[in-house]
């Protein structure tokens, strides 16, 4: 097994550190996030109760990268919003760094699916990025420095004085990510972050997130409906079942810390993991996992 991995890693310029990387987080540490038997129902204006999440449980270790996949409408956004403290679960608890989540945790940032609407069109890019920093007691210069740093980290140069609507969708998404990074959270939640950008931008952004994770040592949870993306980026893939949703299967992705679009995606392990996840996603409701 290590033969293929090592040769793959060498091609990627990663040397022999490919294999099962030492940077793979240990799951015995205290989890950064802990989702415990969370269920969530929506009640319509007419009092109709719709059960979306049914007893979802999982942990996320510090500096772990978890991808959540599931069919559209499964409640992935609902789950992320609940973890982010934007709404309370109907039952169950969520813990962040050992504290129960009752409102948005300070050390957590969320990148919304609808990123263009999460940028304020009346504010310049710089103002948008520094907006969350107002909460921290930083000088104006310090805020500007963090914004510039975050913008260059996401590959956007000197665009601080532009407005969001002067940028393409992919660039707006980078700004939303830069805002989250400038905030320097311990954990980053992202809701289908690359769903509406073209394929090239998409793989660029995937690698960007992986690089940023390394650089900043963040814990990352990404919701996606792209199975290749889930396997390529993550340490673990959580497959959600259809409604009401619970965790159907958890797939460990032991592909090492060094990923490369071409090399990693052509590894036999990658193909195998991808098929495992795909099978789990496709399995009809109620069928037991093998």
């Amino acid at each position: 097994m290590s033969d293929t991995l090592t040769s793959g890693g060498a091609n990627a310029g990663a040397g022999s550190s490919a294999g099962i990387s030492p940077s793979t987080p240990t799951l015995t540490a205290e989890p950064r996030m802990s989702v415990r038997s969370v269920s969530k129902s929506y009640t319509s204006d007419r009092g109709v109760v719709k059960r979306v999440l049914a007893s979802v449980s999982f942990n996320v270790a510090p500096e772990e990268f978890v991808a959540i996949v599931g069919p559209s409408g499964a409640g992935k956004t609902t789950l992320l919003r609940t973890i982010a403290g934007l709404m309370l679960p109907t039952s169950g608890e969520i813990f962040f760094d050992g504290d129960e989540v009752t409102g948005p945790p300070e050390r957590l940032a969320l990148v919304f699916q609808d990123y263009s609407r999460s940028l304020m069109p009346w504010m310049t890019i710089e103002k948008n990025v520094t907006l969350p920093l107002r909460r921290k007691k930083l000088s104006k210069d310090e805020q500007k420095r963090l914004a510039a740093e975050a913008l260059s980290a996401v590959g956007l140069g000197d665009i601080g004085s532009h407005y969001p609507w002067q940028l393409s969708g992919g660039m707006q998404q980078r700004v939303a990510i830069a805002r989250a990074i400038a905030y320097q959270p311990d954990a980053l939640l992202m809701d289908e972050p690359f769903a509406s950008v073209d394929a090239q931008t998409r793989s660029d952004l995937e690698d960007l997130i992986l690089a940023l994770k390394k650089q900043y040592g963040m814990t990352i949870v990404v919701v996606t409906h792209d199975i290749d993306e889930a396997v390529y980026m993550s340490d673990r893939v959580i497959v959600l079942s259809g409604s009401p949703t619970s965790v159907r299967q958890v797939v460990d992705v032991k592909l090492g810390g060094q990923r490369d679009q071409l090399v990693t995606k052509s590894l036999p392990e990658f193909v195998e993991l991808r098929n495992t996840v795909l099978t789990a996603v496709r399995r009809p409701v109620g069928e037991p996992s093998p």
């Binding site: 982010a84 403290g85 948005p104 969320l110 909460r135």
Partner: peptide, 12 residues
Amino acid sequence: VARETFSAYGIR
């Protein structure tokens, strides 16, 4: 979404 962005970042 803008309102949620403000509340997610705990803006005063």
